[in-house]
Design a protein around this nucleic acid. Structure first.
Lengths: 212, 212
DNA sequence: AAAAAATTTAATCAAATGATTAAATTTGGC
DNA sequence: GCCAAATTTAATCATTTGATTAAATTTTTT
């Protein structure tokens, strides 16, 4: 007879399944990941997966939500800081993303694919709508534009530029390694360099050159 | 009795299958695309797919190769031009990518996913290794760095920056629309703006500021 | 230690899925 | 118009895959 979900106590097996699922879903996607693959990767029996998580889909939703939170939470914290300058925020954001993605380079491709496949649902899951546009960061940008210190460009461009220059190298990592003939070490060296360079470039792009 | 592959003559049905396969593989990925979906989308019988293409996998290889060529061929042509300046090449590249991806916004996520899943095989398929690094564009960058006109930064950064600022907005399109509350029209307006802005930004990032 | 609850397993099911078959229909050359 | 090649179809097969079942084992509670 099937049992109800167990009370939480020893999460060893449950956590092993989640870890395996995270790895496989992230690298191979939902459809290409088979429940038997997850079970094998986790070193447990297939039935156990359904016992703990009811279904492949439910397990996936959990993994996806955690991935989104991993990327989203710290960002929101940074862009709502009231005691740091625009430049400091950009430096923090670039540093945080770079360090996170050096540890989990497959995360952005997974998250971006999922957001494309299911944009509406994810507005609910992470309630991100307007969070960015109402942030202190965005106010600082608009204020900079008003005061003439920043170029008069739509603030969204700055968002796009910061994320692009920081995240895209990871999304395109395998391609870049191919076209530039880089091994893992030289690629890591490049991304580390960019932790310093990208904030400089962003400020360079945004700043209004002084009139003579 | 099964027939051998037909001689090419009337590609109507064959082309309909390829078009349906392209659409589904590109938007949903290999594993999530079912041969029956392709057949239905193409308005043909399932057996016909295997008759023309032998297998789902063979059909996929064809689609993937065509997608890669679509992105790769024009690029190589531009970066090997001998009669255009560095700045002109950047403008051409950004314009070409932007226009191509406005028509097929799902292409880059598909290509990047495929390159990640199968990097080695794709070196063979499109023989891109060293093509970029040996290009006239790359020579112009290195010459600019030598002569002091450009900042002394690894040329790969310029490649990364150009692709990032141009392609990433499409990869992250659905996410950007969410966080910035953009509809399709305002998003299109932004990307059109960037066709002008990105080359300016790239030159701004690369150029050595004149000493006073 | 006995009973109850939780965990784990092997076996199995039903649906989905890629592929094949053999027959029917259409097309093009003569 | 006839024939052979090409095209198209419905039916079916074998495997994969998500899920369930019932029984066995382990852990916890008393």
């Amino acid at each position: 007879m099937p049992k109800k979900a167990p009370i939480e106590k020893d999460v060893s097996a449950e956590e092993k399944i989640k870890e395996a699922a995270r790895k496989l879903f992230t690298t191979k996607g939902y459809a290409a990941t088979k429940t038997r693959d997850i079970a094998q990767e986790a070193g447990i029996n297939l039935a156990l997966l359904n016992y703990y998580f009811r279904s492949k889909e439910k397990l996936f939703h959990i993994i996806r939500a955690e991935s989104l939170h991993k990327i989203g939470l710290e960002i929101v914290r940074i862009i709502y800081e009231t005691d740091t300058s625009l430049e400091e925020k950009i430096k923090k954001l670039v540093a945080y993303y770079t360090e996170t993605l050096m540890k989990e380079p497959d995360l952005p491709l997974f998250v971006l694919t999922e957001i494309r496949n299911n944009p509406e649902q994810l507005v609910d899951t992470i309630g991100i709508r307007d969070k960015v546009m109402n942030s202190v960061l965005m106010q600082q940008i608009m204020q900079g534009v008003m005061s003439g210190k920043l170029r008069p460009i739509h603030p969204v461009h700055f968002i796009i530029n910061t994320i692009s220059l920081t995240v895209f190298p990871f999304v395109a990592g395998p391609m870049l390694k191919l076209v530039a003939n880089l091994n893992d070490d030289s690629f890591a060296a490049l991304t580390t360099e960019r932790k310093e360079l990208v904030p400089e470039w962003i400020m360079m792009i945004m700043s209004q050159p002084e009139k003579k």
